[in-house]
Design a protein around this nucleic acid. Structure first.
Length: 575
DNA sequence: GCCGTTTTCGGCCCGACTGTTTTCAGTCG
């Protein structure tokens, strides 16, 4: 049973939770949490590093002790330190730490005094009114705990970025119209363009004493007010989305925006940097002693720390601070850099608009080329094309191109990669196209080795140019299929073909970490809308956000190339 | 448990809000 990085991260997190409940040294606990996060996000497999005998203590936050535990987990699948802790504490108790409002102290108290060990037991204790009499608790706390644990048991999930955007827009408009309010900005994971957000963080400039939090809690979609003070308030909307508002004065705006954008790990790293320079960073500014030396805008905050501005999408403490210090931050790709889109459907299969309608919509967005890439015959429910219908569409595209001005349609296909790695259409049909996108739409359940080989074999087809939505995941609903992405990326490099970053809001596939890998391996990524209707070209913006999180510059993206260069690159992928 | 343009020991990010208290602990972001 191969041990993945995520498995190690889970074990270290569990150890941290258990140590938290034992009231161990908080910095020791933090060491485990930091290690869990770093390992979970790392591109390289710890297992492979161990196999090659690499020195794990070279990794940030890993010393002799944790390196030993990592090797132990790789070898045995578990860790004696964890087993020992688990023997000392009730089996499921760490889940209680994930109920909002409960931290280690309260969980300990509930366990020792009421023998509460599970969320279900917690809910019962709260309903029975047994919690209110514990020292430090009260009737109000008991009611809050009951509500939180019931919400926890009904599993509130993170929501997709595109969904959050809909709720965010009208709320921002409502706040912006308040008297005395200056700028209103969305911060948090939303601003960092994470694919899902757990809540919304909003920052507003207003003078002290303004009524902006009062207006906030009076918003018509507010279902519940969690907290409200003069400068901070939290609510839950009817949709279940939690929104936190922070109000600041203008002089602190940049520092607050930075602080509220996060990530938490990035903030911690920045504060540490400030400390090294004898400064203090908080949400009000950068301070030398009592004097505020920066804070009105984010550039001044980073500047005071000796850094250039760091784009929000990079703020994950994944090396961006070191890169900034060294002057090696990438010039991240922007929507305006895209010259075309290489993945779209029409009424010929499961799209909603015609060739011409799609072409004109793409042109209106400023694109100069659009590849039409219908499904192939195996995807019967989408009316996938067989060789005859594909040939007909090619002729239709040729005719339309004669007439179109300012945009060129490319002839393509999104061809199914069959279980054995062969493609769903004969090479003779594929050879006359401008590009061939291969896609896995079936047998997501193959074991890792077979799934990987299937994709590598598809890439070896001489017509293959681009791998669609490479991991197959659907956000919050379908896990990625089990395949070795590093091998796939390296094979693409060797083979001279490309990877798609599918910008559909349900997919956003490649993941940001894979974008980083592709960039490191020198494989170009195509940011594609997968549009099934004219409006869907708007998805490209989401793809750009994801690409920026993956450190991609315009030069790392295939469809930033002008058409003649793109044609050369697509030709080069042909063998 | 990690780490070191001052350090191999003594640090380790910072403030708001709630609910319980009567000066603050716990939790969260």
């Amino acid at each position: 049973m191969p041990v993945h990085n995520a498995d190690i991260a889970v074990i270290f997190t569990e150890i941290a939770d258990l140590l938290d409940l034992q009231q161990a040294n908080p910095f020791r606990i933090r060491a485990y949490r930091n290690a869990a996060r770093m390992i979970g996000e790392m591109g390289r497999e710890v297992r492979a590093m161990v196999a090659r005998g690499e020195d794990l203590t070279e990794l940030p936050g890993i010393g002799e002790d944790l390196a030993g535990k990592m090797r132990e987990i790789v070898d045995t699948g578990t860790c004696r330190a964890l087993v020992k802790l688990q023997a000392e504490l009730p089996p499921a108790i760490t889940e209680l730490l994930h109920v909002p409002g409960l931290g280690p102290k309260r969980v300990r108290m509930l366990w020792h005094e009421l023998d509460v060990q599970t969320p279900e037991q917690l809910a019962r204790a709260a309903r029975d009114g047994r919690i209110r009499d514990l020292p430090g608790f009260g009737a109000k706390t008991e009611a809050n705990i009951l509500q939180a644990v019931e919400a926890h048991l009904s599993k509130a999930r993170r929501i997709k970025l595109a969904t959050a955007a809909q709720y965010a827009a009208s709320l921002v408009a409502w706040l912006s119209a308040a008297p005395g309010v200056g700028r209103v900005e969305l911060a948090g994971s939303y601003r960092r363009c994470r694919e899902t957000v757990g809540d919304l963080d909003i920052l507003a400039i207003a003078a002290p004493g303004s009524a902006v939090t009062a207006r906030f809690v009076a918003y018509e979609e507010v279902a519940e007010v969690l907290s409200q003070g003069p400068t901070r308030a939290s609510v839950v909307l009817r949709s279940g989305l939690q929104v936190d508002l922070r109000v600041v004065e203008e002089a602190a705006y940049g520092a607050a925006l930075c602080y509220f954008t996060g990530s938490r790990a990035h903030n911690i790293a920045l504060r540490r940097l400030a400390q090294e320079r004898g400064l203090k960073l908080n949400e009000y500014g950068v301070f030398r002693g009592r004097e505020r030396i920066a804070g009105a805008d984010e550039e001044s905050v980073y500047g005071a720390l000796g850094l250039p501005f760091i784009a929000p999408e990079l703020r994950e403490d994944r090396g961006e601070i070191a890169a900034a210090r060294a002057g090696r931050l990438p010039q991240l790709v922007q929507l305006g850099d895209l010259r075309g889109d290489l993945h779209a459907h029409t009424t010929a299969t499961d799209g909603h608009h015609t060739l011409e309608q799609m072409a004109l919509a793409a042109k209106a967005l400023g694109l100069s080329y659009l590849a039409i890439t219908e499904h192939s015959r195996r995807l019967a429910m989408a009316h996938g094309l067989d060789p005859r219908r594909l040939a007909e569409q090619c002729e239709a595209i040729d005719r339309l191109n004669q007439k179109l001005e300012g945009i060129v349609l490319l002839k393509g296909i999104e061809v199914d990669i069959l279980e054995d790695g062969s493609l769903d259409l004969p090479d003779a049909s594929l050879a006359r196209l401008d590009l061939v996108i291969g896609a896995v739409h079936s047998r997501f359940d193959l074991p890792r080795g077979k799934q990987t080989e299937r994709i590598l074999r598809a890439m070896d087809n001489p017509c293959f140019t681009l791998l669609a939505h490479p991991t197959g995941r659907v956000i919050e609903s379908r896990a990625p299929y089990d395949a070795d992405m590093l091998r796939i990326i390296r094979h693409a490099r060797q083979r001279g073909c490309f990877l798609e970053l599918n910008a559909h809001p349900e997919r956003l596939d490649l993941l940001d970490s894979h974008c980083i890998m592709a960039k490191e391996e020198g494989v170009l990524v195509a940011i594609n809308s997968d549009a099934h209707a004219r409006e869907d070209f708007a998805h490209l913006q989401l793809g750009i956000g994801q690409a920026r999180r993956g450190w991609l510059a315009a030069a790392d993206v295939l469809n930033t190339r002008p058409l003649p260069e793109l044609r050369r690159l697509l030709q080069g992928a042909r063998r």
